[in-house]
Amino acid sequence: MPVNSYKKYISLLAFVAPAFILYAVFLLIPTLGGMFYSFTDWNGLNRTYEFIGFGNFAEALIEDPDFIHSLLFTLKYVLFMIVLQNVFALGLAVFIETRSRSKGFFRTIFFMPNMISTIISAFMWTFVFAQVLPQLAEKTALTFLDQSWIGDPNVSFFSILIVSLWNGVGYMMIIYLAGLQGVPQSLKEAALIDGATPFQTFLNVTLPMITHAITICFFLTLNGAFKVFEVVYGLTGGGPGRSTQVITMNIYEEAFSNNFRYGYASAKSVILFVIILIFTFIQIQVMKKREVEA
């Protein structure tokens, strides 16, 4: 029925067009455009540009110490975030799940920071790190609080982690809580009757039952952590110097506040994209295998 399939085609396009046009203009074309420009020496001002093959990529990965540093700094951050964010979120979820009356209260408190914009959180914590903690250290005996929380890159790495965790743990906690609710009570009771300790029950019954939630939270943390920008921007601004600069910030600086080397900055964006793709692919492959059905 050619007439019928023609009508079907038109109707499909009519329904999809509004979303697809905006998507194409603001997401698809920029994505392809970025990839295209990454092979050119376009500087954003001139109309003309030339193809330079993988020249930008080679320069970024070999001759640009600032970019390489930002890459390694981000990788370190991602590693810490994946472990700490999930340990904290799962720990909180498990603890909260055991409470009966105070469950709602704790859930509310721990999720609240997530509602506040990341950049606002970073400003709030700048106050804590730069003003409150030094004063507390002076007035009390807690001298370990007197650190150069923002000025010393070795310490500010952890300041950045603290703010990121404060802001992000609540979100993962909600997903873990939903996962924990899907674990049948009868299974846990059966394990306890069989003589398992609560910890063994958690390890051998609960954990395998929530692997789907774990996969999701690892995926979300991995993706979010590679794209970290606001926390660092608000807290250290990448400084002192460029010592706490993350990849996204390095790209931003290259494109918008440095020398407008759009082609070069695009190559860096493509590198970020490829890195995220590779890590995500590996993570999903490894974790999907471990999932079990309830």
């Binding site: 998507y23 603001f26 920008f229 790209i251 964006s269």
Partner: peptide, 28 residues
């Protein structure tokens, strides 16, 4: 056709914003 369009939408969910911010700014 429907499958291809759907795939295009889904695949783009993996694109980080920072990878498109330069061309997007030009486009805007």
């Amino acid at each position: 056709l429907s499958q291809v369009i759907f795939f295009l939408f889904i695949a783009s969910m993996l694109v980080p914003f920072h990878s498109i911010m330069i061309p997007l700014t030009r486009m805007a």
